[in-house]
Amino acid sequence: MAWGSSNNFAESHTQASLLGDKVKFSGSEKYTVSINGVEYNPVRTSDVWAACGIWDDNMKLVRTFPRNGPPIGESAFLRCGMEKWGYRHIKARHMNDWKRVAAYAGSYNWRDFADWAIEQVLIAPYATNYSATHDMWNYRAPLVIRDNNGNVIKRYRPLVAVANADSNIITAFPRR
């Protein structure tokens, strides 16, 4: 069965365990995922990401995100990019990372979950730092996964890196 082809929440979780997750799921378990107190809702309407075809320009805009951390008042731009930055980089290097975390939230689409997480991190970052070496801003916020009883079972600190010069998103991934 292809990832995302199931409409069954428990099957989604079983797939997550096949992807290397050590947590065992039963059909009755339900998890909540939040960043800065904002819970992910798998049926929410997310902004549509523009497609990045094989012939599309690296600078094609996929999505514009609001950004509240420094530099204040600027947006961050997810562009098609290439191997080392943008959507193509995130898909090639971090798609499976997002899939694993998204499965806890009952999301069948890694892009919808990544969209929500990137937006939350950029709207209300817990930590922001500037890397002069790479001329980029790094944004982080705590992502918490809780079981039915409210117990924290996993914590992540998603990182979103944005180039200082042009505000393009370099990478985004749910690091531990």
Rank of each mutant, 00 (worst) to 15 (best):
Trp3Asp: 10
Ser5Trp: 14
Ser6Gly: 10
Glu11Leu: 11
Thr14Gln: 15
Leu18Thr: 15
Leu19Asp: 15
Val23Gln: 13
Lys24Phe: 04
Phe25Arg: 05
Ser26Ala: 09
Lys30Trp: 02
Gly37Glu: 08
Tyr40Cys: 00
Tyr40Ala: 08
Arg44Cys: 00
Thr45Ala: 14
Thr45Asn: 12
Trp49Gly: 03
Trp55Ile: 13
Asn58Ile: 07
Met59Ile: 05
Lys60Met: 12
Leu61Phe: 05
Val62Met: 03
Thr64Gly: 07
Pro66Glu: 09
Arg67Ile: 02
Arg67Met: 11
Arg67Asn: 05
Gly69Ile: 00
Pro71Asp: 09
Ile72Tyr: 12
Ile72Leu: 12
Ala76Lys: 00
Ala76Arg: 01
Cys80Ser: 07
Met82Lys: 08
Tyr87Asp: 06
Arg88Ala: 04
Ala92Phe: 06
His94Cys: 10
Asp97Thr: 11
Asp97Asn: 14
Trp98Cys: 04
Trp98Ile: 00
Trp98His: 04
Arg100Trp: 08
Val101Tyr: 04
Val101Gly: 05
Ala102Met: 05
Ala103Asp: 09
Ala103Asn: 09
Ala103Tyr: 07
Tyr104Ala: 08
Gly106Phe: 07
Tyr108Leu: 05
Tyr108Ser: 09
Asn109Gly: 06
Arg111Gly: 00
Phe113Val: 01
Phe113Met: 05
Ala114Tyr: 03
Ala114Lys: 04
Asp115Lys: 01
Ile118Thr: 14
Val121Lys: 02
Pro125Leu: 00
Ala127Asp: 12
Thr133Arg: 14
His134Lys: 13
Arg140Trp: 13
Ala141Asn: 13
Ile145His: 13
Asp147Pro: 07
Asn149Asp: 13
Pro158Leu: 08
Leu159Thr: 12
Val160Arg: 03
Ala161Gln: 06
Val162Trp: 07
Val162Glu: 08
Asn164Leu: 04
Ile169Ser: 01
Ala172Asn: 01
Phe173Tyr: 14
Phe173Asp: 00
Pro174His: 03
Arg175Leu: 07
